[in-house]
Design a protein around this nucleic acid. Sequence first.
DNA 1: TTGAAAGCGCTAACAC
DNA 2: GTGTTAGCGCTTTCAA
Lengths: 343, 343
Amino acid sequence: MAEVTLKDVALASGCSIATVSRVLAGTRPVGAETARTVRAAAERLGYRPNHVARALRSRSTGTVGLVLPQITNPFFPSLVRELEHVLHAEGRAVLLADCDDDPLTEADRIGALLARRVDALLLIPVDERRSREAVAAAAAQVPLVLLDRGCGPGVADSVAVDNAAGMDLVLGHLAATGRRRACFIGAAGTASAAAERRAAYEAGVAALDPGAPGRTALGDFSVEWGRAAVDRLWPSRPDAVICANDLIAAGALQRLRQLGAEVPGEVAVTGCDDIPLAGLADPALTTVRQPVGELAAEAARLLVRRPAGGVAGAGARRTVRLAPELVVRASSAPRESNSPATS
Amino acid sequence: MAEVTLKDVALASGCSIATVSRVLAGTRPVGAETARTVRAAAERLGYRPNHVARALRSRSTGTVGLVLPQITNPFFPSLVRELEHVLHAEGRAVLLADCDDDPLTEADRIGALLARRVDALLLIPVDERRSREAVAAAAAQVPLVLLDRGCGPGVADSVAVDNAAGMDLVLGHLAATGRRRACFIGAAGTASAAAERRAAYEAGVAALDPGAPGRTALGDFSVEWGRAAVDRLWPSRPDAVICANDLIAAGALQRLRQLGAEVPGEVAVTGCDDIPLAGLADPALTTVRQPVGELAAEAARLLVRRPAGGVAGAGARRTVRLAPELVVRASSAPRESNSPATS
DNA sequence: TTGAAAGCGCTAACAC
DNA sequence: GTGTTAGCGCTTTCAA
């Protein structure tokens, strides 16, 4: 039951532990015959390489830290899933850290992961500003890729969805299906998603309807705010309510129903992110899907430190913006199909 | 910028590296004066212990593997969050593995974590039967605690909610609020949650209404099934629809509304698990909340190998059952308050 | 191509 | 209480 080590395999196969290491790690060319013998012995003994020893010697743990604000935020699980799969496929393991939406906890977790010698860090910052210091310090020590949210310019490489493009998809769809009087429920603050979606709405909607930029309510990314904002905006009789994320949209949907408004007959509602809730809402929510798989793949790609620049090199940061996809569901169906099918 | 090691601290503080190790790891008593000097030197040099080296020598990585079927299952994120917090508080890190609901992937992930020398495994099995072999093999190597779902008898320690107690809470509440004609939408199969909730409904409801055990529809744990099952059960005019989880309940709620049934006026609907969706449904869903924090705490407690038994000791397995809590929301409000407040 | 030997940074015996 | 001495299991020079 004792652990089988390289030494055991070397003994069993009649060659040195160095050779065994080379065969099993594939580091250097080895005689074909020797390789076969070694592999057979390893197999027979049930040899399992000890990653800890390997890590100590090679100064690489094959481990990536994944730091996120709150795993309970419904957008994150699918992203975590994709990241786990991509990284595992590369033979890397994922150390998960949940920050409780608190920058102090975030700094603490980053420290813990660094102490564990992660090869790299994947990080969704808690706060655009208050995360900056800890993130910058970490980026000086290991490759670090920011995901989904920004953290100030020049701090680290980053991968995120193109929020402006997403908003344009929504606006285009609503215009094409005959909506003429949109309004927007967004989030206040400087967080990148909030600011970008807000700005994109204002820029894009002005072309369609000069009055629309004024029909805007700003709060936070919650269901409660979605409900409350409808009370503020409904009196202006919009025929489309564009929401900055799906939670807001879910709240808007609920309140509109309570007010007796017909969705999508009287008014269309759209969200953003395509969290699981979006498909389950009633009516199902038209939304902008983030390309989670690609986000994960790009993040993994950026993780391998680029050749020039050196470890602490704050050289040019790379920023990848991915195109989102419009998911059209019942909540924005054209008015022709107003009434629920009775047949 | 080079890594500061114990040796550097020893040199700077004028004592041996062993002493420094003792001070910093707190393994053995050390002179107060020496300790102070060492700590000061460590601080000054910015010493950060190398967990990899420590792990190699002490044969303990301070790392726990968390293996789950699918992080996108809406019940898991909150559990993951609690586990992460409990374990981090003990200075342990969490290696996350997502199995894509596939026993083969699960076996693969377990192997990867074992190769990384996790101290222990926290595992929510993908399948009651098909996970068994891999789980048993892993349990022979490291402490392993099963979470939320079973995996056959005697395989490993386990922590889960008391599903029967949860169902009794629901039945009691419905009876107390005047519901007399319940029905049940559950899941088929042998998975522990499905079977236990089903059995508890049948056992508990018979006392209230001899005809109720017959009003049962069995499918899977999905929204779609919830919708479909309502079509089967609604003709029998129940005044309460008890669902085996919140997803089913969400589907039931939607279909009932489409059919023109008033919830909670005509019929109450209840779920199970209290996933985020439950509070956001319309009407908000009465459900049984799993004590996620306690589940996590108990799991962490079981993780420390009990003294007797030895590593591979298949001695008596410990099973912890935790009491759930009823969360009463609008979907089961008593009939007196049928109509939405208009004032 | 292969082997011998030197550590990676730390902890754990064992002396003193 | 403290120092000395061995390694943990592996990769990687350096010779052969």
